[in-house]
Simulated assay, not measured.
Amino acid sequence: MADTDIKIADAGAAGWIANSIVCLMAWAYLCGFVDSKALLPMALVSFGCTISYLGAGISLIKLGNVVGGVTWLYFASFFGFANGLTYALNYFAPIYNWVIDPRILGYEWATLGVMLIFTTPVFLKYSPAAGTIALIGADIGVCALALVYLGYASKFMVLTSAWGLFITGIFGIIMAGGLILEGAGIKFPMGRVLLK
């Protein structure tokens, strides 16, 4: 007989932690603070972040939060796992003289950017300010990255993507910390909901 008293907790903070790590690594790489020798460690960390994204997504789906759950699940697929594979591919391609056309990734990132823009009103209405600011940073960073992959790789566009992702990473840390502390009954200022 199944135990109907099993409680499910919101593991969304784990998704925010993973997302902050992924975004801050991308920021450092896009800004040139690290070079292509960082791609393999970035791949491995992205694979690790997939686990946190999945945990966050599954917990929120079970709690009935479709927007949060679906968001963390597709982040697991693309920001975590596919990103890890792409970093590894970009690390090994020059070593083994593989010829790849990275423009195809522009279509992936454009799709992700559009999906993030679709969820922005939900964040504006229901999320603390830190979460909304993080998402708006992701809107900018991901859409700019799509344009970079599609061939519009000016320094301005690369840095726009980098700094949008930086904002996402920093405000994601605030969200993660706030949610963890809130789970322990400690209030942490994440900001008010921006749209009433």
Rank of each mutant, 00 (worst) to 15 (best):
Trp72Met: 14
Leu54Ala: 12
Glu182Lys: 15
Ile8Gln: 05
Tyr74Phe: 15
Leu30Lys: 04
Ile17Pro: 02
Asp3His: 14
Gly12Leu: 01
Tyr152Leu: 11
Ala9Met: 06
Ala130Leu: 06
Asn65Glu: 04
Ile100Lys: 06
Gly191Pro: 02
Glu182Arg: 11
Thr119Ile: 15
Gly106Glu: 05
Leu73Ser: 10
Ile17Asp: 03
Gly141Lys: 11
Phe79Tyr: 15
Gly164Asp: 08
Val148Phe: 08
Asn83Trp: 07
Thr119Trp: 04
Phe188Tyr: 15
Met190Glu: 07
Leu24His: 05
Leu147Ser: 13
Ser36Gln: 14
Gly48Ser: 08
Ala18Pro: 00
Ala2Val: 11
Asp5Arg: 12
Ser161Lys: 12
Gly113Ser: 14
Tyr152Met: 11
Leu165Asp: 06
Val142Tyr: 07
Gly12Asp: 02
Thr111Val: 06
Ala110Tyr: 07
Leu195Tyr: 15
Leu147Cys: 12
Ile180Asp: 03
Ala129Gln: 09
Leu181Lys: 13
Ala38Cys: 09
Gly69Leu: 00
Arg192Asn: 15
Met25Asn: 07
Met115Ser: 11
Cys31Gly: 05
Tyr107Glu: 03
Phe75Leu: 14
Gly15Leu: 00
Pro121Asp: 07
Val66Ala: 15
Gly80Thr: 07
Phe166Ala: 13
Gly169Lys: 00
Ile140Asp: 05
Phe188Lys: 02
Pro41Val: 11
Gly191Phe: 01
Thr86Phe: 10
Lys37Gln: 11
Thr71Ile: 04
Arg103Glu: 13
Leu39Ile: 03
Met25Arg: 05
Gly15Cys: 01
Ile117His: 04
Ile173His: 01
Lys196Pro: 09
Asn90Leu: 14
Ile17Met: 09
Leu40Ile: 08
Leu181Arg: 10
Tyr126Pro: 00
Phe79Ala: 14
Asp5Leu: 11
Ile117Asp: 07
Ile100Glu: 15
Thr71Phe: 01
Glu182Thr: 13
Met190Gly: 02
Ala82Tyr: 10
Ala14Trp: 00
Gly55Arg: 02
Ile133Gln: 02
Phe123Trp: 08
Tyr126Ile: 07
Gly55Glu: 06
Pro41Gly: 05
Ser154Ile: 08
Val122Ile: 08
Ala184Glu: 12
Asn83Cys: 05
Ile17Arg: 01
Ile133Asp: 00
Leu24Trp: 10
Asp35Thr: 03
Phe171Glu: 11
Leu39Met: 14
Thr168Cys: 15
Leu73Met: 11
Asn97Pro: 08
Leu40Val: 12
Asp101Ser: 14
Phe33Lys: 10
Leu194Lys: 01
Asp5Cys: 02
Val99Met: 11
Ala9Ile: 09
Glu108Thr: 09
Lys125Cys: 05
Val142Glu: 06
Ser46Arg: 02
Cys23Gly: 03
Asp101Lys: 08
Ile21Tyr: 01
Asp139Leu: 04
Ser52Gly: 12
Gly106Leu: 08
Tyr107Gly: 10
Ala13Ile: 03
Ala130Met: 12
Val158Thr: 15
Ala14Arg: 00
Leu24Ala: 03
Leu179Gly: 09
Leu85His: 04
Gly131Gln: 05
Phe79Gly: 04
Trp16Ala: 12
Met1Glu: 11
Leu194Arg: 01
Ala144Gly: 05
Phe92Tyr: 15
Tyr53Thr: 00
